[in-house]
Computed example of a mutant assay.
Amino acid sequence: MSTESASTTIDPDAVMWSASESDRQGRPLLVLMHGYGSHEGDLFGLAPSLPLEPVIASLRAPHAAPWPLDGWSWFTAGTDDGPRRDHVNDSADAVIAWLDSLTVTPTSVGLLGFSQGGAMVAQLMRRDPKRFAYGLVMSGFITPGEEPGDAELAESKPPIFWGRGTGDEVIAESAIVRTTDWLPTHSTLSGRIYEGLGHGINQQGVADARAFIERNL
């Protein structure tokens, strides 16, 4: 194991939960992962607009974002070619290790992430295809390279939602093309392009996310 991997962990004390430990028994889990330079409280604000059945856990990314950002990141921003694969996988494996450490085992696990967190959704499903029931990639992308789970995903085609705005100038065009090519062959894809939306999630996106989750519980 690399030094980077050994030091990359999810802080359990920073996780925001929608239910107490005693209320998590026998329920599905929805894991939220924020974007670059943000924090665990960001997407947790969506909780009232999402289905009530899943327990929601909003994670803090394991790395401090570089100055002047006052937040956290899943991996360094990288280039148009994408982030370094080992950095993305260190964080993905940290999330899997955190899931393994839970004292209450959920009945299923779904993923929802924004931007970098959306890239993490796909990478987690590529790292451990059998673990996750569905994923929502909000203004996110597929990272470059091949993963051992890709072949299995091409067979099982788990449900994935990909939503993005026509006005998003943050995600590189090369990443959009890569994602457009990859998702239809490795998932049962539901997608929506939001006219005029920049790098964000609008009310229609939240409604679409809720409907997608409800269909896949």
Rank of each mutant, 00 (worst) to 15 (best):
V104Y: 13
Q123K: 02
A133F: 06
I142S: 09
G149R: 02
Q123A: 15
D128Q: 08
S101K: 07
S101W: 14
S139E: 06
Q116A: 15
L124C: 12
R131N: 06
T107F: 09
P148R: 10
A119H: 04
T143H: 02
K157I: 01
P148C: 12
S139R: 07
A154S: 15
P129G: 12
P148S: 08
V104E: 13
M120S: 14
P144G: 14
E155W: 03
L136K: 00
L111K: 09
L112T: 01
T103G: 14
A119S: 14
D150I: 09
G140V: 10
G117A: 07
V121W: 00
M120C: 15
E147V: 09
L153C: 05
K130I: 01
P144W: 09
L153Q: 13
T143Y: 00
V121K: 00
L136M: 15
P106S: 07
M138L: 14
L136G: 05
K157P: 05
Y134D: 06
V109G: 03
R131T: 06
G149S: 02
E147W: 09
E152C: 04
L102I: 09
S115L: 09
L99K: 04
A151P: 04
E147L: 09
V104Q: 12
F114D: 13
M138Q: 11
F114V: 06
R131P: 05
G145D: 12
F141L: 10
L136N: 02
A154Q: 14
L112H: 01
E152Q: 12
S139I: 03
G110Q: 05
D150K: 02
L136P: 00
L111R: 04
R126F: 09
P144S: 11
S115R: 05
R127F: 01
G140R: 01
